[in-house]
Design a binder for these strands. Structure first.
Length: 406
DNA sequence: TCTGGGGTCCTTCATCGA
DNA sequence: TCTGTCGATGAAGGACCC
């Protein structure tokens, strides 16, 4: 979908690069014998959803985030593959390395996409469109997968451009053509318009970005709140001042789990909280953070969800502390009286560098002992795998720790 | 149809201290 | 001393994204 002729990329220094059907493409690269078949990456045999589908499967109506059971009905002859997150992570690091060889101004958004500001690379590598083409060739040649590149004067328009030229395309939106490109699009194309906001806008008769751009701001404020109204109105006029930022700091770390079948037994729930607290604490330690606020998420069988949180007096990265707080919050929710749950989650926020918090942590001798013990466990699991060590309460005769997963 | 898991951001409400 | 106000902060929930 390359544009014919040389597009006018003057001033278009922002590139949005997005791998095409990333997980599925990696799987196809490693199994070329199924390249002509519909391929779906998902956890099967439970309550999983589709993580990625190749374009053949999409032709049957299969989409990301769709329940696996539905995907199986739509495309029963598809090849269903369990995800290999470690492989995707490794490919992602190679992709990001290619980007960083072009410019240090790289802002990863997820494993498979990033913004690049190439204003500093133009003199060395040529105009933005040429840089985009070079990156596409390099990703394909080096990694065997394809990507799409959107090029514009702002992040938001660059992102829409890459969506527009998928798969395996490159699209430049010249500075003077932004509104021509933007205004015919449906409002759902805007960042921040999901199912809920889409319904509100539809009720107001606003279907295209042009409709939204020309809507009275006070009406939008009344319906959506001041912040969202200003945000969407600015986007609808192509205004997006956000710069490409590198080294974005994480704000929270957590883990959650959906059970294969709903569970009401508080002992089982607490065991799950212990496991999730362990995963969360390991995430904190491997990133070098401690956290001050701990929250639990509890989702009932009918999908209604509550969260409960508590801020500690001192930050922690100790699983036992996170677990104890999570249990307290679970008890305080009243859900520990046999309420059937389909999901539990543990999340920590208010992150700060563990190195800066070291002296405070040492004040609690007991916490410090736990910390040292869990640090030793980290070393063992990093060497022998995550199954090598676990708290005694997670060892059951008939289940491995990870068998509970749907 | 039946909804994962990891996140961010925003809004609203309650509380507390000045 | 009492009351009202205001800003900061925390908690909770929801919408959204990939």
């Amino acid at each position: 979908m390359d544009q014919a002729g040389a597009p006018d990329d003057t001033g278009c220094h922002i590139l949005h690069i997005d791998m095409d059907a990333f997980y599925a493409s990696v799987e196809l690269r490693d199994r070329p014998q199924i390249a002509a078949q519909p391929v779906v990456v998902a956890h099967t045999g439970g309550r999983g959803v589709v993580l990625s589908a190749n374009y053949i499967a999409r032709g049957f109506g299969v989409r990301s985030a769709m329940p696996v059971t539905r995907a199986q009905r739509l495309c029963p002859h598809a090849v269903f593959i369990s995800p290999r997150h470690d492989v995707y992570g490794a490919v992602s690091r190679e992709v990001m390395a290619i980007f960083k060889a072009v410019t240090p101004e790289v802002e990863p958004l997820s494993l498979d996409e990033a913004f690049l500001d190439v204003s500093g690379a133009v003199r060395r590598l040529g105009p933005p469109a040429a840089i985009g083409s070079q990156i596409r060739r390099q990703v394909h040649g080096q990694l065997g997968i394809t990507c799409s590149v959107g090029i514009a004067t702002s992040k938001f328009v660059a992102k829409l451009a890459s969506v527009h030229c998928k798969p395996d395309g490159l699209l430049v939106i010249p500075a003077g053509r932004v509104l021509d490109f933007l205004h015919p699009l449906p409002v759902s194309a805007l960042w921040g318009v999901g199912e809920r906001t889409g319904k509100v806008l539809a009720r107001l008769g606003l279907r295209t970005v042009a409709d939204l751009a020309n809507a009275p701001l006070d009406t939008l404020e009344r319906e959506l709140g001041r912040g969202s109204a200003a945000h969407l109105s600015a986007l609808a006029w192509g205004r997006d001042e956000r710069r490409v930022t590198t080294g974005v700091q994480e704000k929270s770390i957590g883990a959650e789990e959906t059970f294969a079948t709903d569970i009401g037994d508080p002992d089982v729930i607490r065991r799950e909280l212990l496991r999730l607290a362990g995963r969360t604490a390991r995430g904190l330690r491997s990133s070098g953070y401690v956290a001050k606020t701990i929250s639990v998420k509890l989702r009932r069988a009918d999908f209604s969800t509550i969260t409960r949180s508590r801020t500690l007096t001192e930050p922690t990265d100790v699983a036992q502390k996170i677990y104890a707080t999570a249990c307290d919050l679970y008890a305080g929710s009243g859900y520990d009286r046999g309420v059937q749950l389909r999901l539990v989650g543990v999340r920590v926020a208010g992150l700060s560098a563990a190195s800066a918090a070291g002296t405070q942590l040492a004040l609690g001798e007991r916490a410090d002992a736990w910390r040292q013990a869990e640090g030793a466990m980290d070393k063992i699991t990093s060497r022998f795998g995550s199954g090598a060590l676990r708290p005694g309460s997670l060892v059951t005769p008939d289940h491995s720790e990870d068998d509970r997963r749907s």
